[in-house]
Design a protein around this nucleic acid. Structure first.
Length: 279
DNA sequence: AGTGAGGCCTGAAAGC
DNA sequence: TGCTTTCAGGCCTCAC
């Protein structure tokens, strides 16, 4: 399930593969996504050159030289396959194909929670996708104080607040648990109950956890593959996610007594934490 | 306004 | 063994 690190990894792979290239054509097999793929999608991008590729939150923004842009989101099961061959064998859940001079991009998404669409480049940042988007974790203005102010009126659990893309963008369910573990903060604490020192620690942890994941090439769970088809390996570095009952990395507690890493459900999403270290 | 629940979607895993 | 049910989750909409 692509979170910020995975999207960053995919964006970098796309840059290396197709930046500067001309789009020769596109084919859409299924248009029913979170946002319906517009009928003129293929025409809008055909013969345009790719002039810029960047990540915004969990979106990939591909800017073309015809004042149009492609906006792409991978939902939770989306993959982009970068194929060198022109003749690509169609696989199950391949929904759209973009042919460039050098390669073919295939959008595969079993659950179709993602989306790919076109819009005017000048409209991208004004669009509904970004109207409420929160700060990027790597923005220089992101600080403990930002969290304190943004969360002052929030009584929801801090873990649930981290998933709210209008506060800090890019954090998904895995890294929310991981960042709170790193910061030693209990996921059930009210979002507005942390001290400034704790907000600072949380900010540090968010950045550290995301940076580590980007470095590792994005994590792999069952739905995620790097665009070139290889698998990431950050899942081996998860400290608490999906480790119910196991001893946490940093504590020497007797798991027969403490039960080890705990799993709870918050706002319909599973949360993992160490009940000994996180306060 | 803030919050929680429900829905979209499919495949893997668990349950019977 | 083979069927049915549950679960996973990013993000949106809706009701309170």
């Amino acid at each position: 399930m692509p979170e910020l690190p995975e999207v960053e990894t995919i964006t970098n792979a796309l840059k290396a593969a197709v930046l500067g290239q001309k789009i020769l054509g596109a084919q859409v097999f299924c248009r029913k996504f979170r946002v319906i793929i517009p009928d003129d999608f293929e025409n809008k991008i055909k013969n345009a050159r790719i002039v810029n590729i960047k990540r915004i939150a969990k979106y990939i923004w591909i800017e073309l030289d015809n004042s149009q842009s492609i906006l792409w989101h991978l939902g939770m099961s989306g993959k982009i396959k970068i194929c060198e061959s022109k003749d690509v064998l169609r696989e199950k859940h391949d929904h759209a194909v973009i042919m460039t001079e050098g390669c073919t991009l295939v959008y595969n998404d079993a659950r179709r929670f993602g989306m790919i669409t076109t819009m005017k480049t000048s409209e991208v940042l004004k669009s509904a996708f970004f109207s409420k988007i929160g700060i990027d974790p790597f923005d220089k203005k992101f600080a403990g104080r930002y969290l304190k102010e943004k969360l002052a009126a929030k009584s929801i659990a801090i873990k649930v607040a981290l998933l709210d893309q209008s506060i800090v963008n890019g954090i998904g369910n895995i890294y929310a648990s991981e960042a709170l573990f790193e910061a030693r903060i209990l996921p059930t604490r009210a979002a507005n109950s942390l001290s400034l020192k704790e907000y600072d620690a949380l900010r540090e942890s968010i950045i550290r956890v995301l940076e580590k994941a980007i470095e590792a090439g994005g994590s792999t769970l069952r739905d995620y593959k790097k665009p070139d088809g290889s698998m990431g390996y950050f899942q081996n570095m998860h400290c608490v996610y999906n480790k119910t009952g196991q001893q946490c990395r940093d504590c020497r507690c007797d798991i027969k007594k403490t039960g080890g890493i705990k799993k709870i459900v918050q706002a319909g999403r599973s949360t993992f934490y160490c009940p000994v270290l996180q306060k």
